[in-house]
Structures are given as C-alpha cells and as structure tokens.
Design a binder for these strands. Structure first.
Lengths: 190, 190
DNA sequence: CAAAATATGGAGACTGTCTCCACTTGTCAA
DNA sequence: TTGACAAGTGGAGACAGTCTCCATATTTTG
C-alpha cells in the first residue's frame, strides 16, 4: 500500500523540521499563517515546503497523524476491554475530548472531511473506519440498531469538529453524542 | 431592529441585479466563481459589488434569504398543525430535503454556521431559533427530553449542511436525523 | 573521487481580493 | 426647471497569498 521510497538524508531532515515547526505554530493557535511562512520559520525555502506538502492540508495532516493514530489505536483497545456498546460510547466521548483539547486537530479534521477536499485523506477515512468497526461489533452484539451506518454518526462528528473552535459549544457536543448514542440503542421502527 | 434607509433608485436596481445574477450563477453550481466576476456578469463595477456585499457570504445570504424565510415560516405552520414531536420531526426532515435540493443553500449555511465567520449571520440564527421553539414546545408537551438544547441538534444539522454536496451522503443524513429524533424521545438517564 | 541522482531555495509570475477617488446620477428645495 | 448637494458608481491598480521554475547545492553510488 505504501511504496515509501527512502528519502535522502537532507530531505528527511527538512521534512521533519517543517512538521515540527508547524506543530509548534498550530499549538500556538496560528492556523491562518501565510503558507510560505511555514517554510521561512522552519528555515527552508518555499520550494521545499511545496515539494513535501503540496497543500496546507497535507501539512496539517502530517502534524496530526500521530494524534489520529493514537485515537484509532484506542478504538482497538476499547473493543477488547469493554462491551461493544460501551466501547463505542467511550470512543466517541474520547473523540469529543480530543477535539476540544486540540483545536488544530478539530480544524484539520473538519477541513479534511469536507467535500471540497476530494482527496478524502487517510486521516478521516481511518477515523470513520474505526467508528464503523465499533458499530458493527455493537450491532452484532445486539446492543445497537443495525440499520444505521457509521456514515450517519460521522455526520454528527463532522458538525462537532467544525464547531469545536467555539469552546462554548462543548456542552452541545456532549449532548449530541448522548442523544445519538441513545438513538442508536433504540430499535428501528418496524 | 432595522434602520433600513431607503436606497436610491439606481442603487436598488444594481443591488437587485447583483442578487439575481448571483442566484442564477449559484443555480448553475458555480460557487467558486471569482468574486469580482459577479460584478462583471451583473454589469456593475467591482466597487458597487463590494459596497452592497462586503463579503461573498453576504451575497450568498441575500440570495438564500428567501428560502430561509420560507423554511422558518414552515416551522410556524407545522407547530400549529401537528403535535409538537411530529412538527419537529417534519421540520428537520424538511431541512434535509431542502439542503439536498439546493446545494448552494447547504454550502451557504455551512459557511455561515462555521465559527470562522463570526458575524453569526441572521440566517442560521433564525434557523436555530426555529428549531429551539419547536424543541421547547415538544419538551413542554413531554414528547422529548428537556435536558438537551437546540444547539446540540444544530451540530448535527451543521454536519449535514457541510456534507450535502455529496449526493451520496443523503441516506446518512436521513439516518442521523432518525437517530437524533429517537434519541430525543428517550428520557434522560436518571 | 567523479558522475548521476536527488533536493534546495527564493525570485518572480500569477491570481483573486479589495480600496480609492474622480466622476456620474438621482433627489429635492426653491 | 434648475442648481446644488448627496448618494452612488466603476474600474485601475495596490496588495497579499499561492505556487512554479530552474540554476545551484548536496547526497549517494559505483
């Protein structure tokens, strides 16, 4: 799946410097920085920046891949240690937590999930897949209805991501998750 | 609430030409047209465009105000003709329908609801208020739980709006509404 | 160590946004 | 009607990001 040609030493170094600096900048909340400036600040030329990351989103994805991977890994753990419905609930709560503690991640996911970016980056597909697996397991255990797919739940997650920059929306985010979980538990009408 | 200074005759004419042309352009699906070109195509100068509509969103809002107003009016009707829970359900289904039949409206609402546009334009506030009223009525009638506000439901709506450009997401949108409605019907856990 | 392969950087082309103001058009009182 | 004032216009050009291109530099390979 990944040809992964080994990068030349200096190339790897530059790439890493770029990601490190970007992480720092995002952590400071500076999401709308002029793209070229990421290069300037990381001490590389703009050409180099663009070669490694053709778009702003590509850079953001690299920065948050770690967090995303961790999140998905957690899904696996939960599936082993909890009953299916609880695992799903805990996972979704965790996602909300993460969004509100990492604004940059929220914004990145919101962008990547939006239809205008048709790359349909790995990031959110991974997240969607994790949710799908948890839901399938729960449905097979009879803990939630089986007539609703992960895509539906991801719509709510999408809404949460795009709104997570307003800290005041936190309560609403928790509430919609509660409502969705309750709604999933309910059997489909015949 | 609205000082509404009467516009000079030619000013009103230009403004209307702008909105009409924009509606036409949006209907054709050309959402990302260079902003200045809206002026060119409507036969006015760019300055005029910017005076009437300082941002792209302002123009979009003007174009879709009609649809929005109609939608909110429908909420009022439903409240009179249906039991509260049904009114809420019918309204939300209607919103989804409208989004998938008017891509431009979906995109506009998605943009206006996003936190980056802090104008918090009239449009979505109105929509939110309509949902809030329907929910309050339903809660007072004991038909849905009272511990969840309209904001939570609007998060799901937000997700639907931003995804409505993929026609393939339609089923998911319907599903999430079903799930949310079911979740609302359930009493809060003690 | 030389040649080939790979990567660099930053000047400047390009694209879209928005401002500015000399000029035109409409309004209204006399 | 008309004059004079207010209101509105348009589009050239300033500006700000984005992205490309290629002469030059660095690394790897044989």
């Amino acid at each position: 799946m990944s040809p992964e040609k080994p990068l030349r030493a200096d190339a790897r170094r530059n790439r890493e410097a770029l990601v490190a600096k970007a992480r720092e900048i995002f952590a400071a909340g500076d999401f709308d920085l002029r793209f070229d400036d990421f290069a300037k600040l990381a001490g590389v030329g703009t050409g180099t920046l663009y070669r490694h990351f053709p778009t702003r989103e590509a850079l953001a994805e690299a920065v948050y891949r770690e967090e995303l991977t961790a999140m998905v890994a957690r899904a696996g753990e939960l599936r082993k240690t909890h009953p299916p419905a609880e695992a799903l609930a805990a996972f979704l709560r965790g996602v909300v937590d993460l969004m509100y503690s990492h604004q940059g991640l929220a914004r990145t996911l919101a962008t990547l999930m939006s239809p205008q970016v048709d790359v349909l980056a790995e990031g959110d597909q991974t997240l969607g897949r994790a949710v799908a697996e948890l839901m399938t397991a729960a449905a097979e255990a009879g803990a939630i209805r089986a007539d609703v797919g992960a895509g539906a739940v991801m719509l709510a997650v999408q809404g949460i991501c795009t709104t997570a920059e307003h800290p005041s929306s936190r309560a609403d985010a928790d509430d919609i998750i509660t409502v969705v979980l309750d709604g999933l538990r309910r059997e489909a009408a015949p």
